[in-house]
Design a protein around this nucleic acid. Structure first.
Length: 519
RNA sequence: GGGGCGGUAGCUCAGCCGGUCAGAGCAGUGGACUCAUAAUCCAUCGGUCACGGGUUCAAGUCCCGUCCGCCCUACCA
């Protein structure tokens, strides 16, 4: 049923000046799992991620480091952002940088079209500008400075002085799209998810929309406004367009039709840009709005939103070095209800790793493979007459397959994993009840022994397929040990329980070794 | 000031339109078992569902108010 349908999914593009932390990695992993899952369901899938490299802040840090902004961005992309994707094992199909020609050229095309169609006008703008935020601030967002900034106004977020700027700006007539946006939210209740995010957006748009300043003339690190090269495009306007410039907008109509619209996965901090400004921009240009915008929650550390400034930021490698990328992926996607805030703690991570991955799934794989090796000489046994318990396992495999795919289709990754884990638990329980080690002692029970092991073997293979989007490394090892044909990533996940059996098992190292705490 | 979300067992959280909804996992305790990564399985302890009212035959589940946490947004100045 999933055949031939197209599924494009995106992460936000990273602001290169940021330091990668587990929040970035969380967004990437969630998006990657959705993409892998759809890919394995036969969908024509495309996962896009990338970097946002324009703006005054980058210009300034580059200058401070004595290099050009492009050199600065190149360095950060190579040293921080591409490595982040490797750290958490992301299988993206494309990586766009906003400094690439395919982006800049088509941003200009897009902008020119809005200009030609009367959606842009010239205006004056005066306001306090925070370089850190890359945006103008309202009075309410400013605080009186202290210490060295005594007497100045400082940004409430960055605690650095803001600058009073006065500039000619080009404005996007966003206010004209309020009604169309409301109609969109009405007609497509799933356009903004989860429900809490949709409520935020609705109340915001209902309260009225202002026009949006979309150019800057005080610095030049950005895409030039095509009809006035003394201005560069406002970074956010520029950044949002990556979603279409990356898939051929203005350049390759066939590709664009194939890949757009995409489902956006974002953090809730940038909800408004994606659920209001972005669709308004697209409406103005006569381009389809996104398939949907899904805002996930914050990772809370010690009950607070994780933040770089509060030093609660955690680098993904801190986790993957000890637990591995599979565990990172599994932990954040299973422990957190996708869309809600979730608490992170090392204790919880370690506990879940041990209980669920090592003792639950890993040990299950280990005991099944070991018994087939020991009792059947490594030859995959064939099932004979099936008992009620065997049929029950088969039906749980079916249920896990159906339920997890249904959950993924509604972006409930957390539910998909939970549905799959029922099979892990069922198989461990099945083995305890059937006691193949006892059957093995009685030659007359040979057929039953082989049937039990065949049933467990089959369930394990189904698990490998179902968990491959979340645990790509471990399931690949397991697939090999099961002696199954092809790669696990090639298996249809929406028919996970129909995989083709192998003939011989091979030794399996511990998928999730126990972690001895040395501290 | 307006708005959004949340406050459920020690911990992390499920509980859709009101009627076995008082739950799960982990931790704790007791027992079984040995194929396996000292793993697995079973049983069990544990909560006045933030607080106060209200609607109802019936309310974590709806309404009002209060307190607490987080987030978005405004303004007097």
């Amino acid at each position: 049923m999933a055949d031939a349908s197209s599924f494009s999914v995106t992460t936000p593009i990273f602001y290169v000046n940021d330091v990668p932390h587990i929040g970035h990695a969380y967004t990437e992993v969630a998006t990657d799992v959705l993409a892998r899952w759809h890919r394995q369901a036969g969908d024509d899938t495309w996962m896009l991620t990338g970097t946002d490299e324009h703006g005054q802040k980058i210009l300034r840090t580059a200058t401070a480091n004595g290099v050009t902004p492009k050199e600065w961005a190149d360095k950060l992309v190579a040293e921080a952002w591409v490595p982040l994707l490797e750290t958490v094992d992301i299988a993206n199909d494309d990586f766009i940088r906003t400094t690439e020609d395919r982006h800049e050229t088509n941003v200009q095309k897009f902008l020119q079209k809005l200009y030609d169609d009367g959606h842009i006008y010239t205006g004056e703008y005066e306001g306090y500008y925070c370089v850190g935020c890359e945006e103008y601030k309202q009075q309410s967002e400013l605080l009186p400075g202290e210490g060295e900034y005594e007497g100045q106004l400082v940004c409430a977020i960055h605690s650095k002085p803001v600058e009073l700027l006065h500039e000619k700006n080009y404005f996007f007539r966003m206010s004209a799209f309020a009604e169309q946006l409301l109609a969109l939210y009405e007609e497509r209740p799933d356009f903004v998810q989860p429900e809490s995010a949709r409520n935020e957006v609705l109340s915001f748009v209902r309260s009225g929309l202002a026009d949006l300043s979309i150019s800057r003339s005080t610095f030049d690190w950005g895409v030039k406004v095509p009809w006035d090269d003394s201005h560069v495009v406002y970074v956010w306007f520029d950044a949002l367009l990556n979603y279409i410039t990356a898939v051929g907008y203005g350049q390759d109509d066939a590709e664009f039709t194939r890949r757009w619209p995409a489902q956006h996965i974002i953090g809730k901090d940038i909800l408004r840009f994606h659920a209001v400004i972005w669709p308004a921009m697209l409406m103005a240009a006569g381009v389809d709005v996104p398939r949907g915008v899904f805002a996930h929650g914050w990772l809370l550390v010690g009950g607070e939103k994780m933040s770089k400034s509060k030093l609660t930021g955690i680098a993904p490698e801190q986790i993957t070095e000890t637990f591995g990328s599979d565990a990172f992926r599994y932990y954040f996607l299973s422990a957190i209800n996708f869309g809600q805030d979730g608490s992170f703690s090392w204790e919880d991570l370690a506990a879940r790793y041990q209980a669920e991955l090592a003792n639950g799934f890993g040990n299950l794989a280990s005991r099944v493979v070991a018994m087939i090796t020991r009792y059947c000489g490594g030859v995959v046994p064939a099932a004979a007459e099936l008992s009620a318990a065997d049929h029950e396992i088969a039906s749980i495999e079916q249920r896990a397959t159906d339920a997890s795919w249904a959950a993924v289709e509604r972006l409930a990754v957390h539910d998909a994993i939970a549905a799959t884990w029922e099979l892990v638990d069922a198989l461990n329980g099945y083995l305890t009840v059937e006691e193949p080690w006892t059957l093995a002692k009685d030659p007359h029970q040979r057929a039953r022994l082989e049937t039990v092991l065949a049933t467990a073997y089959h369930g394990l293979g189904t698990l490998a397929v179902l968990l491959s989007p979340v645990l790509p490394k471990a399931t690949a090892k397991l697939w090999t040990a099961l002696g199954a044909p092809g790669t696990v990533q090639e298996q249809r996940i929406d028919r996970a329980n129909e995989w083709t059996l192998g003939e011989r098992v091979s030794p399996l190292e511990a998928l999730f070794p126990r972690i001895e705490v040395a501290e």
